[in-house]
Design a protein around this nucleic acid. Structure first.
Lengths: 142, 142
DNA sequence: TTAGGTGCAAATGATTTGCAATAAT
DNA sequence: ATTATTGCAAATCATTTGCACCTAA
């Protein structure tokens, strides 16, 4: 009996190496998208995996659509398990990230396809601002 | 009589140096968001400006809201003059970038502010896919 | 067994930092 | 005259590449 992760990998004809399994487990557990550096720190301790391997795994899994690569204007990428389309509310003060479902964009995309004759394959929609808690604490809101 | 660019800079208490004026002119002329490297190549020839200066100008002008920093998942930033909110249709084949007006997101933002108690300060919405021309030419559309 | 993965060293590309020299107001 | 801005050299950070060795299927 294969578990979810093993199954996912074998579905994509990817070898189920320790590094890949551990990386997928770690990302699954994290509630917010993680950057390569976090994974490197965790996996270097636990498994002795080289940083290069982690970048390679992230690329492979992203290419296979198992992971989704995100950019929050930090000069580095973050990754999350691919799941239903959703967006992120990113607090610029504490870094909290909340997921919100994607309800409007599919509609917009149809209009765009029609009006601009553009074939949309993917999109990114992120909101930056202050979460509930930080609104109380931060003085300069604008 | 100050021109637009000089006026903008002085409004922000920024000195109107040749490098800044030239950079703003160049970005104004470009129809699509430019990356630092393009500016470096242009400005190094024309004015002999150092690359570091260009990065610093981009940071300063972005901090003052004169420019807007964009990330199209290329591992580098692009910049455009801050203007009305709009989004981009980015062709993954030829790199063409088309602007489209932002009509829906303001509505969405109100709902989010209400439902999630999140203070939105800015957002990014980009669509990736194939432009009209490339749809005809590219074989593997998915 | 064997194609696909990984480690290590070194390279690349984008962007930043420190400090002394320089120019805009 | 002052303070902001620039140039130059060197550093940092994220990510990639080449190649020999290793291992999951």
């Amino acid at each position: 009996m294969k578990n979810d992760i093993q199954q996912t990998l074998s579905d994509h004809n990817l070898k189920a190496t320790d590094a890949r399994k551990f990386l997928l487990e770690t990302i699954s557990i994290e509630k917010r998208p993680v950057d390569a550096q976090s994974l490197i720190e965790i996996m270097q301790k636990k498994l002795g995996v080289d940083r290069v391997t982690i970048f390679r795994i992230l690329n492979t899994l992203t290419a296979h659509g198992i992971l989704r690569r995100l950019e929050f204007q930090e000069g580095k990428a973050r990754y999350e398990i691919s799941s239903d389309d959703h967006h992120h509310l990113i607090c610029e003060n504490c870094g909290a990230i909340e997921d919100i479902p994607d309800t409007m964009v599919p509609k917009i995309e149809k209009e765009i396809a029609r009006d601009h004759d553009f074939l949309i394959k993917r999109h990114t929609l992120e909101f930056f601002g202050l979460c509930k808690n930080c609104q109380k604490r931060v003085k300069f809101k604008d």
